[in-house]
Design a binder for these strands. Sequence first.
DNA 1: ACTGTAGCTGATACCGCTAACATCAATCGG
DNA 2: CCGATTGATGTTAGCGGTATCAGCTACAGT
Lengths: 335, 335
Amino acid sequence: MADVARLAGVSSMTVSRVLSGYPGVRQETRARVEEAIGALGYRVHTAARTLAGGSSGTIGVISVGASHYGPSSTVFSIAAAAREFDRSTTVVILAKIGEGSIRQAIEHLQSTHVEGIIVNAFVQTAVDALSRIDTDLPLVVLCGDQAPGHPSVAVDQRAGARLATRHLLELGHATVHHVRGPSGWIDAAGRAAGWREELGSWGRRPPRAHTGDWSAQSGYAAGQRIAADPSITAVFVANDHMALGVLRALHEAGRRVGDDVSIVGFDDIAESAFSIPPLTTVRQDFDTVGREGLSLLLRAIDGRAGDTHITVEPRLIVRNSTDAATSARRRAPTG
Amino acid sequence: MADVARLAGVSSMTVSRVLSGYPGVRQETRARVEEAIGALGYRVHTAARTLAGGSSGTIGVISVGASHYGPSSTVFSIAAAAREFDRSTTVVILAKIGEGSIRQAIEHLQSTHVEGIIVNAFVQTAVDALSRIDTDLPLVVLCGDQAPGHPSVAVDQRAGARLATRHLLELGHATVHHVRGPSGWIDAAGRAAGWREELGSWGRRPPRAHTGDWSAQSGYAAGQRIAADPSITAVFVANDHMALGVLRALHEAGRRVGDDVSIVGFDDIAESAFSIPPLTTVRQDFDTVGREGLSLLLRAIDGRAGDTHITVEPRLIVRNSTDAATSARRRAPTG
DNA sequence: ACTGTAGCTGATACCGCTAACATCAATCGG
DNA sequence: CCGATTGATGTTAGCGGTATCAGCTACAGT
């Protein structure tokens, strides 16, 4: 930096001002400095800037492991969006989620002086922990519900589940069964609640839900139980991976999906359009969630986020795994 | 830090020594310092440490977008492994891959003073660019082949492809067709080469390969062309997403996979075990790749990586999409 | 001509830590 | 018993920026 200053014939302070976009620098001086920067291939030393009280230009992201589709795509969206806003992204992957590990992750990020943190909080434990953590660092929560105490971005899980359930009911199914995600996960609870609500608003009593762990394996197991009950004609499965497992179990049991039984998933993963049959599902736009999360965090860093809660609406994608319940209506108890 | 020193009755230098694990500190002194650290809830200021010449404790990861299964799971493995080694991870997601963008990403990471960089280089362009980039920063390349000029970790794509092809030939198929990945991708080239080699070693002339873009959509399109040719009894598809598309196209055309036609995929994504029928595939252990990549980088940082190239062997997972080619042998031209 | 003000730039003092060397006591070989 | 060595700790001087305030010029108002 001293070299740049010398070459441009100014003090290092002026160079600093040019770099941080301070307006009160003469056009001509600015040009000279920028030329010197270019000529010397100079780049700021982030650590020095951070130490001297400037901003680190880095935001922290805390998330659970890679195995889940939603969380990981969100992290990538955040990283990509951050880059567009000239921010670095430091990612902390939590092996297991607990108040301790989250607190530790936040402290870790704090010691690296990130400007703010986005937490991918997909389990209730995480949200609870966050509501108890009071850091002065700007913090945005991404989750399936409004997070108390911090600005948040969420896909409306309940609305999505209602969309799915309503679609099945409108096709004429007497009732809709549900394979839910594991307890403790916010999205699992939200989707189950939406399913229950929609059934309720149609005056149907929700049957007992099956529970999976998001994996295709667990969906397969649930699917086997579902196949064994011929009265079931419509199933809303809490995510696409499990839905694919259900599809296969039904297929093996000789029940034709989209004909004997209708299935709706959730997420719209890339494979769902090409499953056999193509899966009707609820699309969540994780990219939007990530980007909105980042822009909310940047607002929070500027102190003007307040207590904003952004809701992203999911969308029903109708494919061939659902169809009018002609045969179903004949067989099922009238609803 | 000065407070800690005061409370422990030592100089700040001793605190620094305790923090960085310098051995020449008396046990008793060390204990006193650690106690003070705990009492004051002190944490190092990473930027200050970096500035003063210590290590930043951060490693950089450069990767392509989120849409591809392999790259993204690898990034997560790296981040998780890094955390176990008390390193932060700064992730740069490249919107588009070119020499310019990679160089820019490296420079960006350099200005944040990462200790080293892991590049997820899945396209040839990236590897070429890297071989031309000569940075003094330790740099490890993850890719489908040995990267010249830098230590690297790779899954042996050729071996995986040969495994898949051999499996099909051993089942009695006269020849094996191939749906390859997009040109420019190292893995696509490696798998195609392995397929060609294995066919060659059985004295079969490789048929013309179909080309997809890794997506299920493109696999579906290829599948339709394959279904139209009744002489095809065995297909090796370059990744599972495309294979699922092929599966569906064949299904729609009324060709029974695992009976009329055998399909082998590559990757072993979570859904493959539950496709209809379950997909025989080649498993790549991305977690191992990520971890080996990190440990190689840590060795490189210590200056003892040399020109190591680690190869991770893939594994054939046999499921129901492949079966003895009884009907095929009758129909196909003798090979 | 003099003061006031605005606009631009410079000098200086840190930010919190570590490298390098200095210091001091204890131990050791001859 | 003395100089040399070793081990534990302290002192000093930055690392490369930015905050703060001071200084200088040009111009307007009186």
